[in-house]
Design a protein around this nucleic acid. Structure first.
Lengths: 121, 121
DNA sequence: CGGGATCCTCGGCGATACTG
DNA sequence: CAGTATCGCCGAGGATCCCG
């Protein structure tokens, strides 16, 4: 499938519910974590890689490309040897900040709840 | 893998970031949409099925089971012929309401943006 | 350093059939 | 009506190699 077709399909309002649209942007395997780390400021490719234990180079690249296509992440390439590429949130990406912070807060509480459950068990 | 093992693994704080924990609860293929519809009130299995065009019986069952295991959805079985099963948000599930509503709002805006993009293109 | 290109595996998910 | 069981596909994602 061509990239243009993918975009057409993806943006074709084929979402049954707007919640799905949001999930399509932040719901990838590493996307929400990448976005959350970018709230802390611009990051180089290698920095992000070190911040996500277990991510492969390929997956990090793919996820960043999709975030870029969705308009929430900006990719700045410095043409030099060795290469340097910086990633940051776009203005539109910053509109996700509130949701991402709430997701972190809820997740912390969720983990805490289940730790207690394990202790009492 | 035994269910107990899955739970152990899932709740083992193996999330690199709390955001992932939240995504594990609401990030399934149909989970966030199910949860969002349950904000509107208790629903029967068949009702949910009709509200999610394209979902298979199997997937709806699996997703509901996981939501139940995560403690955000309550399953009420009425022992009668024909069977009747109702699903609703637990108190803990209601703590997701704000996030879900924001996700819907952001998703609506996202779809709107890309519709404009298509028109201007 | 930050990628592409290729090959291959594994499990998520659909399709179908059966049941209390 | 609301599930469970079984089979089979295919695409997400890992491993590896090469490049500017």
């Amino acid at each position: 499938m061509e990239k243009a077709e993918m975009r057409a399909k993806r943006f074709d309002c084929s979402y049954g519910c707007p919640v799905e649209a949001t999930l399509d942007v932040i719901g990838g395997k590493w996307k929400s974590v990448i976005l959350f780390h970018l709230i802390g400021g611009t990051k180089r490719f290698g920095e992000l890689r070190r911040m996500l234990p277990g991510v492969t180079q390929r997956m990090l690249t793919l996820q960043l490309r999709e975030l870029e296509e969705h308009g929430v992440v900006h990719r700045e390439v410095y043409r030099q040897i060795p290469p340097k590429v910086e990633y940051s949130l776009t203005d539109y990406g910053w509109t996700l900040e509130s949701i991402l912070r709430q997701m972190r807060d809820w997740g912390e509480e969720f983990v805490r709840q289940h730790q207690e459950e394990k202790i009492s068990a």
